[in-house]
Protein backbone atom coordinates (compact mmCIF):
# COMPACT_ATOMS: atom_id res chain seq x y z
CA UNK A 1 0.00 0.00 0.00
CA UNK A 2 2.64 2.47 1.16
CA UNK A 3 4.83 1.92 -1.84
CA UNK A 4 1.85 2.09 -4.18
CA UNK A 5 0.85 5.48 -2.82
CA UNK A 6 4.32 6.90 -3.04
CA UNK A 7 4.62 5.70 -6.63
CA UNK A 8 1.37 7.40 -7.53
CA UNK A 9 2.50 10.64 -5.94
CA UNK A 10 5.83 10.46 -7.65
CA UNK A 11 4.14 9.84 -10.99
CA UNK A 12 1.84 12.81 -10.41
CA UNK A 13 4.75 15.07 -9.59
CA UNK A 14 6.55 13.88 -12.65
CA UNK A 15 3.60 14.59 -14.93
CA UNK A 16 3.23 18.03 -13.44
CA UNK A 17 6.85 18.93 -13.92
CA UNK A 18 6.74 17.55 -17.44
CA UNK A 19 3.72 19.69 -18.18
CA UNK A 20 5.47 22.73 -16.74
CA UNK A 21 8.52 22.02 -18.87
CA UNK A 22 6.33 21.60 -21.92
CA UNK A 23 4.59 24.94 -21.38
CA UNK A 24 7.83 26.75 -20.76
CA UNK A 25 9.56 25.34 -23.83
CA UNK A 26 6.55 25.28 -26.15
CA UNK A 27 7.83 28.03 -28.41
CA UNK A 28 11.28 26.55 -28.77
CA UNK A 29 10.93 22.75 -28.59
CA UNK A 30 7.32 22.56 -29.74
CA UNK A 31 8.01 24.76 -32.72
CA UNK A 32 10.82 22.54 -33.87
CA UNK A 33 8.72 19.45 -33.38
CA UNK A 34 5.83 20.87 -35.41
CA UNK A 35 8.24 21.66 -38.22
CA UNK A 36 9.56 18.09 -38.09
CA UNK A 37 6.06 16.65 -38.35
CA UNK A 38 5.24 18.92 -41.25
CA UNK A 39 8.31 17.75 -43.13
CA UNK A 40 7.46 14.12 -42.38
CA UNK A 41 3.91 14.66 -43.56
CA UNK A 42 5.15 16.24 -46.76
CA UNK A 43 7.41 13.26 -47.37
CA UNK A 44 4.55 10.85 -46.80
CA UNK A 45 2.41 12.74 -49.29
CA UNK A 46 5.29 12.74 -51.76
CA UNK A 47 5.93 9.00 -51.42
CA UNK A 48 2.29 7.98 -51.45
CA UNK A 49 1.16 10.29 -54.26
CA UNK A 50 2.05 7.93 -57.14
CA UNK A 51 0.30 5.06 -55.37
CA UNK A 52 -2.67 7.25 -54.53
CA UNK A 53 -3.04 8.75 -58.00
CA UNK A 54 -2.64 5.31 -59.50
CA UNK A 55 -5.35 3.98 -57.26
CA UNK A 56 -7.77 6.89 -57.94
CA UNK A 57 -7.11 6.69 -61.65
CA UNK A 58 -7.85 2.98 -61.67
CA UNK A 59 -11.31 3.70 -60.29
CA UNK A 60 -12.21 6.44 -62.79
CA UNK A 61 -13.94 6.25 -66.14
CA UNK A 62 -12.17 7.52 -69.26
CA UNK A 63 -13.94 10.88 -68.87
CA UNK A 64 -12.92 10.91 -65.20
CA UNK A 65 -9.18 10.62 -65.69
CA UNK A 66 -9.31 12.94 -68.71
CA UNK A 67 -11.04 15.82 -66.89
CA UNK A 68 -9.75 15.59 -63.31
CA UNK A 69 -6.21 15.60 -61.90
CA UNK A 70 -4.81 12.19 -60.89
CA UNK A 71 -4.79 13.21 -57.22
CA UNK A 72 -8.49 14.10 -57.12
CA UNK A 73 -10.50 11.30 -55.60
CA UNK A 74 -12.91 9.72 -58.12
CA UNK A 75 -16.04 11.91 -58.16
CA UNK A 76 -19.32 9.98 -57.86
CA UNK A 77 -20.24 10.54 -61.51
CA UNK A 78 -16.91 9.10 -62.71
CA UNK A 79 -16.53 6.10 -60.35
CA UNK A 80 -16.29 2.69 -61.99
CA UNK A 81 -14.76 -0.72 -61.34
CA UNK A 82 -14.82 -1.49 -65.02
CA UNK A 83 -11.07 -0.95 -65.43
CA UNK A 84 -10.30 -3.48 -62.65
CA UNK A 85 -12.64 -6.04 -64.14
CA UNK A 86 -11.26 -5.61 -67.64
CA UNK A 87 -7.64 -5.69 -66.45
CA UNK A 88 -8.33 -8.84 -64.45
CA UNK A 89 -10.08 -10.42 -67.44
CA UNK A 90 -7.22 -9.69 -69.80
CA UNK A 91 -4.43 -10.61 -67.38
CA UNK A 92 -5.85 -13.59 -65.53
CA UNK A 93 -4.18 -16.19 -67.78
CA UNK A 94 -0.82 -14.37 -67.46
CA UNK A 95 -1.11 -14.26 -63.67
CA UNK A 96 -1.58 -18.04 -63.71
CA UNK A 97 1.39 -18.42 -66.09
CA UNK A 98 3.52 -16.32 -63.79
CA UNK A 99 2.56 -18.31 -60.70
CA UNK A 100 3.26 -21.57 -62.51
CA UNK A 101 6.86 -20.67 -63.32
CA UNK A 102 7.71 -18.29 -60.45
CA UNK A 103 6.85 -20.69 -57.62
CA UNK A 104 9.08 -23.58 -58.76
CA UNK A 105 11.89 -21.20 -59.74
CA UNK A 106 11.73 -19.50 -56.34
CA UNK A 107 11.64 -22.69 -54.30
CA UNK A 108 14.29 -24.43 -56.41
CA UNK A 109 16.78 -21.57 -56.36
CA UNK A 110 16.41 -21.16 -52.59
CA UNK A 111 16.71 -24.91 -51.96
CA UNK A 112 19.70 -25.42 -54.27
CA UNK A 113 21.34 -22.30 -52.85
CA UNK A 114 20.92 -23.69 -49.36
CA UNK A 115 22.40 -27.06 -50.38
CA UNK A 116 25.36 -25.37 -52.07
CA UNK A 117 25.96 -23.17 -49.03
CA UNK A 118 25.84 -26.24 -46.76
CA UNK A 119 28.51 -27.86 -48.92
CA UNK A 120 30.62 -24.72 -48.82
CA UNK A 121 30.45 -24.21 -45.06
CA UNK A 122 29.94 -27.50 -43.21
CA UNK A 123 31.71 -30.03 -45.43
CA UNK A 124 35.45 -30.05 -46.04
CA UNK A 125 36.75 -30.53 -49.57
CA UNK A 126 39.46 -29.15 -51.79
CA UNK A 127 38.83 -26.21 -54.12
CA UNK A 128 36.01 -24.63 -52.10
CA UNK A 129 37.42 -21.14 -52.50
CA UNK A 130 37.41 -21.37 -56.30
CA UNK A 131 33.78 -22.52 -56.33
CA UNK A 132 32.80 -19.81 -53.87
CA UNK A 133 34.47 -17.27 -56.15
CA UNK A 134 32.38 -18.51 -59.11
CA UNK A 135 29.21 -18.05 -57.06
CA UNK A 136 30.30 -14.53 -56.10
CA UNK A 137 30.94 -13.63 -59.73
CA UNK A 138 27.53 -15.10 -60.59
CA UNK A 139 25.86 -12.61 -58.25
CA UNK A 140 27.32 -9.66 -60.13
CA UNK A 141 26.56 -10.65 -63.75
CA UNK A 142 23.96 -8.19 -65.05
CA UNK A 143 20.83 -9.58 -66.77
CA UNK A 144 21.45 -7.54 -69.92
CA UNK A 145 24.84 -9.09 -70.61
CA UNK A 146 23.47 -12.62 -70.79
CA UNK A 147 20.43 -11.97 -73.01
CA UNK A 148 22.02 -13.00 -76.31
CA UNK A 149 23.82 -16.13 -75.09
CA UNK A 150 20.67 -17.04 -73.17
CA UNK A 151 18.51 -16.87 -76.27
CA UNK A 152 21.11 -18.86 -78.20
CA UNK A 153 21.28 -21.47 -75.47
CA UNK A 154 17.53 -22.04 -75.52
CA UNK A 155 17.68 -22.27 -79.32
CA UNK A 156 20.34 -24.97 -79.16
CA UNK A 157 18.50 -26.77 -76.36
CA UNK A 158 15.28 -27.22 -78.27
CA UNK A 159 12.91 -27.61 -75.35
CA UNK A 160 9.65 -28.03 -77.36
CA UNK A 161 11.03 -31.03 -79.25
CA UNK A 162 12.56 -32.45 -76.08
CA UNK A 163 9.12 -32.23 -74.47
CA UNK A 164 7.33 -33.53 -77.55
CA UNK A 165 6.04 -36.57 -75.62
CA UNK A 166 3.54 -34.29 -73.89
CA UNK A 167 1.76 -31.70 -75.97
CA UNK A 168 0.86 -29.68 -72.84
CA UNK A 169 4.47 -29.44 -71.70
CA UNK A 170 5.69 -28.72 -75.22
CA UNK A 171 3.21 -25.87 -75.54
CA UNK A 172 4.39 -24.47 -72.19
CA UNK A 173 8.10 -24.95 -72.89
CA UNK A 174 8.72 -21.18 -72.78
CA UNK A 175 7.59 -21.09 -69.17
CA UNK A 176 9.75 -24.09 -68.32
CA UNK A 177 12.77 -22.41 -69.94
CA UNK A 178 11.99 -19.28 -67.95
CA UNK A 179 11.76 -21.26 -64.69
CA UNK A 180 15.09 -23.00 -65.32
CA UNK A 181 16.78 -19.73 -66.30
CA UNK A 182 15.58 -17.90 -63.21
CA UNK A 183 16.55 -20.84 -60.98
CA UNK A 184 20.08 -20.85 -62.38
CA UNK A 185 20.32 -17.08 -62.18
CA UNK A 186 19.06 -17.05 -58.58
CA UNK A 187 21.32 -19.79 -57.16
CA UNK A 188 24.44 -17.60 -56.66
CA UNK A 189 22.72 -14.93 -54.56
CA UNK A 190 20.81 -17.57 -52.57
CA UNK A 191 24.06 -19.47 -51.94
CA UNK A 192 25.81 -16.35 -50.69
CA UNK A 193 22.89 -15.48 -48.40
CA UNK A 194 22.69 -19.00 -46.95
CA UNK A 195 26.46 -19.21 -46.62
CA UNK A 196 26.52 -16.15 -44.37
CA UNK A 197 23.81 -17.72 -42.26
CA UNK A 198 25.40 -21.15 -42.01
CA UNK A 199 28.69 -19.65 -40.89
CA UNK A 200 26.86 -18.57 -37.73
CA UNK A 201 25.68 -22.12 -36.99
CA UNK A 202 28.07 -23.77 -34.53
CA UNK A 203 30.24 -26.44 -36.21
CA UNK A 204 30.07 -28.49 -33.00
CA UNK A 205 26.44 -29.27 -33.76
CA UNK A 206 27.37 -30.78 -37.11
CA UNK A 207 30.22 -32.71 -35.52
CA UNK A 208 27.95 -34.02 -32.77
CA UNK A 209 25.54 -35.22 -35.44
CA UNK A 210 28.38 -36.97 -37.29
CA UNK A 211 29.37 -38.81 -34.10
CA UNK A 212 25.70 -39.64 -33.62
CA UNK A 213 26.00 -41.55 -36.89
CA UNK A 214 24.26 -39.16 -39.31
CA UNK A 215 25.55 -38.91 -42.90
CA UNK A 216 26.07 -35.52 -44.56
CA UNK A 217 22.71 -35.72 -46.29
CA UNK A 218 20.94 -36.73 -43.07
CA UNK A 219 22.65 -33.87 -41.23
CA UNK A 220 21.36 -31.45 -43.87
CA UNK A 221 17.90 -32.90 -43.73
CA UNK A 222 17.56 -33.14 -39.93
CA UNK A 223 19.79 -30.38 -38.55
CA UNK A 224 20.64 -27.72 -41.11
CA UNK A 225 17.35 -27.54 -43.02
CA UNK A 226 15.15 -27.06 -39.92
CA UNK A 227 17.54 -24.40 -38.63
CA UNK A 228 17.35 -22.54 -41.98
CA UNK A 229 13.72 -21.40 -41.73
CA UNK A 230 14.42 -17.68 -41.23
CA UNK A 231 16.90 -17.60 -44.13
CA UNK A 232 14.43 -19.47 -46.32
CA UNK A 233 11.91 -16.71 -45.60
CA UNK A 234 14.45 -14.12 -46.75
CA UNK A 235 15.47 -15.92 -49.93
CA UNK A 236 11.92 -16.95 -50.84
CA UNK A 237 10.63 -13.38 -50.56
CA UNK A 238 13.65 -11.99 -52.38
CA UNK A 239 13.52 -14.52 -55.20
CA UNK A 240 9.75 -14.40 -55.57
CA UNK A 241 9.76 -10.61 -55.90
CA UNK A 242 12.69 -10.59 -58.30
CA UNK A 243 11.39 -13.31 -60.58
CA UNK A 244 7.78 -12.14 -60.49
CA UNK A 245 8.76 -8.57 -61.42
CA UNK A 246 11.15 -9.57 -64.20
CA UNK A 247 10.21 -8.54 -67.69
CA UNK A 248 13.53 -8.77 -69.53
CA UNK A 249 14.04 -12.57 -69.52
CA UNK A 250 10.36 -13.05 -70.35
CA UNK A 251 10.59 -10.75 -73.36
CA UNK A 252 13.56 -12.74 -74.64
CA UNK A 253 12.34 -16.24 -73.86
CA UNK A 254 8.53 -16.18 -74.25
CA UNK A 255 7.56 -16.41 -77.89
CA UNK A 256 3.84 -17.24 -77.90
CA UNK A 257 1.30 -14.84 -76.44
CA UNK A 258 -0.55 -17.58 -74.56
CA UNK A 259 2.61 -18.06 -72.49
CA UNK A 260 2.82 -14.35 -71.59
CA UNK A 261 3.70 -13.73 -67.96
CA UNK A 262 2.06 -11.05 -65.77
CA UNK A 263 4.61 -8.32 -66.49
CA UNK A 264 4.23 -8.89 -70.23
CA UNK A 265 0.43 -8.85 -70.01
CA UNK A 266 0.66 -5.57 -68.10
CA UNK A 267 2.80 -4.22 -70.89
CA UNK A 268 0.12 -5.28 -73.39
CA UNK A 269 -2.51 -3.18 -71.57
CA UNK A 270 -0.75 -0.11 -72.89
CA UNK A 271 -2.89 0.64 -75.95
CA UNK A 272 -1.27 1.63 -79.22
CA UNK A 273 -3.51 4.65 -79.93
CA UNK A 274 -5.30 5.70 -76.76
CA UNK A 275 -3.74 5.58 -73.31
CA UNK A 276 -6.25 3.76 -71.12
CA UNK A 277 -4.72 4.94 -67.89
CA UNK A 278 -7.40 3.49 -65.63
CA UNK A 279 -6.84 0.06 -67.16
CA UNK A 280 -3.07 0.27 -66.83
CA UNK A 281 -3.26 1.39 -63.23
CA UNK A 282 -5.67 -1.38 -62.25
CA UNK A 283 -3.38 -3.87 -64.02
CA UNK A 284 -0.34 -2.59 -62.16
CA UNK A 285 -2.12 -3.09 -58.83
CA UNK A 286 -3.16 -6.60 -59.78
CA UNK A 287 0.40 -7.54 -60.76
CA UNK A 288 1.81 -6.12 -57.53
CA UNK A 289 -0.67 -7.98 -55.32
CA UNK A 290 1.09 -11.41 -55.00
CA UNK A 291 4.41 -9.90 -53.88
CA UNK A 292 2.55 -7.89 -51.23
CA UNK A 293 0.81 -11.03 -50.00
CA UNK A 294 4.15 -12.87 -49.78
CA UNK A 295 5.65 -10.06 -47.68
CA UNK A 296 2.73 -10.12 -45.28
CA UNK A 297 2.79 -13.92 -44.92
CA UNK A 298 6.56 -14.30 -44.37
CA UNK A 299 7.17 -10.86 -42.87
CA UNK A 300 8.10 -11.86 -39.31
CA UNK A 301 10.33 -14.72 -40.46
CA UNK A 302 11.93 -12.30 -42.93
CA UNK A 303 12.88 -9.90 -40.13
CA UNK A 304 14.34 -12.78 -38.10
CA UNK A 305 16.39 -13.95 -41.04
CA UNK A 306 17.77 -10.49 -41.74
CA UNK A 307 18.85 -10.08 -38.13
CA UNK A 308 20.73 -13.37 -38.40
CA UNK A 309 18.92 -15.16 -35.60
CA UNK A 310 19.16 -18.90 -35.93
CA UNK A 311 15.91 -20.71 -35.35
CA UNK A 312 15.26 -23.07 -32.50
Amino acid sequence: MGTGESTTTEAATETESARARATRGLDRVGGRRIALYLVLLALIVLYLSPLWSGFTTSLKTAAGFATTTPITPPLPEYVTTEAWLEAWGRMRFAMVNSLVFVLPATVLSAFLGSLAAYGLTKIDWRGQIAILLLFLIGVFIPYQSVLVPLRQFWTIVDLPSLLAFSSTLAARSDLIALAITHTAYGIPICTILFRGYYLTIDDDIVEAAKLDGASSIRIYRRIILPLSKPMFAVTLIYQFTNIWNDLLFALVLVRTSRNFVATQALNELQGAMVGQYNLQMAGAFIVALPTLIIYVVFGSQFAKGLSGESGG
Partner: peptide
Amino acid sequence: VFQSYALYPH
Protein backbone atom coordinates in the same frame (compact mmCIF):
# COMPACT_ATOMS: atom_id res chain seq x y z
CA VAL B 1 30.50 -34.50 -25.03
CA PHE B 2 31.45 -31.05 -26.30
CA GLN B 3 32.52 -28.06 -24.27
CA SER B 4 29.74 -26.07 -25.94
CA TYR B 5 27.36 -29.05 -25.38
CA ALA B 6 26.44 -28.81 -29.11
CA LEU B 7 22.79 -29.67 -28.50
CA TYR B 8 20.52 -29.46 -31.54
CA PRO B 9 18.68 -26.20 -30.79
CA HIS B 10 15.51 -26.98 -32.76
